[in-house]
Design a protein around this nucleic acid. Structure first.
Lengths: 134, 134
DNA sequence: ATTGCCTCCGTACCATGGTACGGACCCCAT
DNA sequence: ATGGGGTCCGTACCATGGTACGGAGGCAAT
C-alpha cells in the first residue's frame, strides 16, 4: 500500500485532484476514512495501490465508451458474483465498439479522399462536403 | 431543389427540427430568406437538396470527431480556396482518428478477455478491473 | 513559529450538443 | 371560416464530465 495523498493518487492516474473528488462524489472511488487526527475536521485521506488500479480502470473503461454510470455498475459487479450481467455489459459494449470502429474507419477513408483531392493540383476549392457523401 | 420545409429537412437528415434551428444559430446551416408573405413576420423557410447535403455532411463530420466549431470551418473552407488549411485539418483528424481507433481496438480486446474470463466457469466474481489492466 | 504547499469542503461554473416550452402565426383541407 | 398541424422565435433547461473558487485548516521544513 503506497500511502498516497489525493494529489499523488491524481498524478498516478493522470487526472486532476478535482476529478478524484468528483469520482468520490459519484461513488466510483471510496472516500477513505480519515485518521481522526487532533484537528476537529480530522486528518488527511490516504490511498493505496488498489485505489490506483481502480482509478486506472475507470479511465480505461471510459475510453471503451462506458459512461461513468455504467462504470459504477462494473465496479459493483467486480465484487459480486453476477457473471451473467457482467458478460451482458461486456458483449453489448463490444458490439457498440465494433460499430464505432467501423464508423471511424469509414470517416478515415472519407478524410483520406479529401486530403488526396486537396493535394492533387487544380485550382479552386477542394470539395470538402462531397468528400463525405457516400 | 426539393422545396422542403424545416420538418422535412430534419427528417431527411435524421435529426430533429430543433437541431436544425440550433445549427442555424451556430451558423452551420443558412437561414434561408423567407418569402415576404403577407404576414408581418414573413412566411415559412424553404430548403433544397443542397441543404440536405450540407446537413448530412455535418452529421458525417461529427462521427469523424470534428466539433461543430471545426465543422463550421470546414464548411467555410469548402467554398474557399484554402487548400492547405483544408489538408491540415484533414490530416490532423486522420491522425487523431488512427489513435482513437487503436484505443478502441485495445478496449475491445480487454472486453473480449473479460467476456471470456466471465464465461469460463468457476465460481466467484470475474475480475472486471483486472481485465483492463495492461 | 512562519512560510509555503497540500488538503478539505461546498457550491458554482464551464463546454458541448442538443432538447423543451409556450405563445403567435401560417397554410391547407374540409 | 374553422381546425389541425407545422413553423417561428426567444429563452430556458438538460446531461455529461468535469473544472474553478474561496476560505479554513493541516503538515513539514527552515
Amino acid at each position: 500500500m503506497a500511502d498516497l495523498t489525493i494529489g499523488a493518487l491524481a498524478r498516478a492516474g493522470g487526472v486532476g485532484v478535482e476529478t478524484i473528488r468528483y469520482y468520490q462524489r459519484r461513488g466510483l472511488l471510496p472516500e477513505p476514512a480519515r485518521p481522526a487526527g487532533p484537528g476537529l475536521g480530522g486528518g488527511v485521506r490516504r490511498y493505496g495501490s488498489g485505489d490506483v488500479r481502480r482509478l486506472r480502470f475507470i479511465r480505461s473503461a471510459q475510453t471503451a465508451g462506458f459512461t461513468l454510470e455504467e462504470i459504477g455498475e462494473l465496479l459493483t459487479l467486480d465484487a459480486s458474483n453476477e457473471r451473467a450481467r457482467a458478460q451482458d455489459l461486456a458483449r453489448a459494449r463490444i458490439l457498440a465498439l465494433d460499430a464505432r470502429i467501423a464508423e471511424l474507419t469509414e470517416a478515415r477513408e472519407a478524410l483520406a479522399r479529401l486530403a488526396d483531392a486537396c493535394a492533387s493540383g487544380g485550382a479552386g476549392p477542394c470539395p470538402i462536403i462531397s468528400a463525405f457523401q457516400p
